[in-house]
């Protein structure tokens, strides 16, 4: 189990430091730097192709970091991946539940991948599923769930090993309005009640609330980062939509 009191002490929950990434000759990320503090909700805002999923793949070590550094609570993802990844929960954009297995079996598999024994895994599975209101579906096949229910189970699964940092890559894509609102509210509640640092990648500006931290990513470049109000002020815009349009419009002009 992670000792949260220690993890919260000095380190950023997630630190991205001058990270660049190439696919062949194409630059997908260009010198990106920002931090996510513990117990904070940070939105990674960008259009499709901005580099959000590439950044997530680097943070989760699906890709190796070749330029720059990424650390989770001070543990470098490249040099101490085990320590970094055990503090990280991930909800990928693509559905990653095994459809042929039950919810309980999916969670047990995840627990085993983190070295968590059967008894502890069962207790924690009941706990995290209850929090997303899915405990009654414990023995159902994943295939039988709706898109919103799958997402809730994936969030529960991501919390099973008690991470202190949670990544969610466009978790509300394809969901109806109520499912979107429920999931967003649940994750915000995790930040408030359990002190988890959250990085929420999205292209939907209406998922951002006043007071959130926001990181604007466009075509691999970080355009601005800070509190919503600060970003709006710097862009000279009345709201986040206008600020985003202005920032990305300026970026497009510069790129030309």
């Amino acid at each position: 189990m992670i000792d949260s009191s220690k993890d919260h002490a000095l380190e950023a929950a997630l630190k991205i430091d001058r990270v660049s990434h190439f696919y062949g000759k194409r630059k997908a990320l260009d010198d990106v730097s920002f931090e996510v503090r513990p117990a904070s909700f940070t939105v990674l805002l960008g259009l499709n192709g901005a580099g959000k999923s590439t950044l997530f793949s680097l943070i989760t070590r699906l890709f190796g970091v070749r330029s720059g550094a990424i650390s989770i609570f001070g543990f470098d993802v490249a040099r101490t991946p085990g320590e970094a990844l055990r503090r990280l929960g991930v909800v990928f954009q693509a559905r990653t539940l095994d459809l042929d297995l039950s919810i309980a079996q999916n969670l047990a598999y995840h627990a085993a991948l983190h070295g968590i024994g059967d008894a502890t895994a069962k207790a924690r599975a009941a706990d995290v599923l209850a929090k997303v209101d899915m405990l009654d579906r414990l023995n159902d096949k994943a295939r039988a769930l709706s898109g919103g229910q799958m997402r809730r189970v994936e969030i529960a699964r991501a919390l099973l090993h008690r991470p202190r940092m949670l990544l969610l890559d466009e978790p509300t894509v394809g969901l109806d309005i109520k499912a979107r609102a429920d999931i967003l509210a649940h994750v915000r509640n995790l930040v408030a009640t359990e002190g988890i640092g959250v990085l929420w990648a999205t292209h939907l500006i209406d998922e951002i609330l006043p007071g959130d931290n926001v990181v604007v990513l466009h075509r691999g470049k970080l355009l601005d980062a800070g509190k919503v109000e600060e970003v709006c002020a710097r862009a000279g815009s009345p709201d986040m939509t206008a600020a985003f349009n202005r920032l990305t419009g300026e970026a497009a002009t510069e790129a030309q």
């Binding site: 009191s5 320590e83 983190h114 070295g115 024994g117 002190g195």
Partner: peptide, 22 residues
Amino acid sequence: MSVQSAAPVEPRGFSLVQYAVC
């Protein structure tokens, strides 16, 4: 929630039991 501690976080590694569970 307690957030007051200056102790550095130590790497803990994984035990043989955890490898076996995995």
